[in-house]
Design a protein around this nucleic acid. Structure first.
Lengths: 141, 141
DNA sequence: GGCCATACTTACCTCTTGGTCTGTATCATA
DNA sequence: TATGATACAGACCAAGAGGTAAGTATGGCC
């Protein structure tokens, strides 16, 4: 059930893109970098994403080694999802993508249509803030 | 017909992914970094990609400001596609993706299923270096 | 026994992407 | 007049990703 059969592209760049670009994978990873999360927690963090879809994304990421799934045999089921080493190693890459994304928006005069690279986890805030410059938010150096 | 209406994602990272991840966009860009190319040239460089699809990809990239389309009013039509500043600025990003892609393959013991990050522009060479039927192209790093 | 929370699964539907195949416009040249 | 090279456009199709809505399993707790 792991990786057999359905192979990834031969070109590394395409492989990377294929692995990363699922509708919700990037944001899910952003959240998992903050620590492991239960399915229900992710659901709360990303309202608008149905449970089925969330699980789909997580499973694919698991197959690709980005995410770890840990099951606790408890009464109300408890499952924790966390980023693997591979998942963590994506941080600089996604950060680069984020920076370029803003650069792209800037060049097209659409800076008002993108969020800050760190506020990604709060897309609803963008209304007021144009681009928060105050740093903050440091994680695993 | 440029960018109105169909907006890109709010999250910069997703925006970047959306712009980059078309089936042939990455490879096309690799080639355009080497200099502008005519449609027919790209066709020769990427056999297996139909003209219609090639044009599709190029047009989308044009809309997103990655590619420039220059028409020469000549007898047998002549159109040159080249990378814009924005397109060129993607090089380090794609390189990062490529590196990570190889890293990913390495971690999953599939280094024999990816090419080198620079040979991307010559996918036709794979034939000799074996990869479909023959050995692996090993590449310690 | 019935209820509850959690984490799924399944059936089904829609829209986008990428793909094939064929048609068209241009105009120098044979 | 027919041909040929180049760059498209259009009709059509298949697969897949993502979405909705509903059902299932578990086992303490009232």
């Amino acid at each position: 059930m792991a990786d057999p059969a359905k192979r990834l592209p031969l070109l590394p760049a395409e492989r990377a893109l294929k692995v990363i670009s699922g509708r919700w994978k990037a944001i899910i990873l952003y959240h998992l970098w903050d620590g492991s999360k239960r399915l229900s927690e992710l659901g709360r963090l990303l309202p608008g994403v149905s449970q089925k879809v969330m699980i789909q994304q997580l499973r694919e990421m698991e197959e690709h080694g980005l995410v770890n799934r840990e099951v606790f045999r408890q009464v109300p089921p408890r499952v924790e999802y966390s980023a693997t080493e591979l998942g963590l190693s994506l941080e600089p890459v996604l950060l680069a993508l984020c920076d370029w994304g803003r650069h792209h928006a800037e060049e097209l005069d659409e800076l008002d249509r993108v969020t800050d690279c760190r506020t990604s986890r709060r897309p609803s805030l963008l209304k007021h803030s144009s681009l928060s410059s105050g740093e903050s938010l440091h994680r695993r150096s």
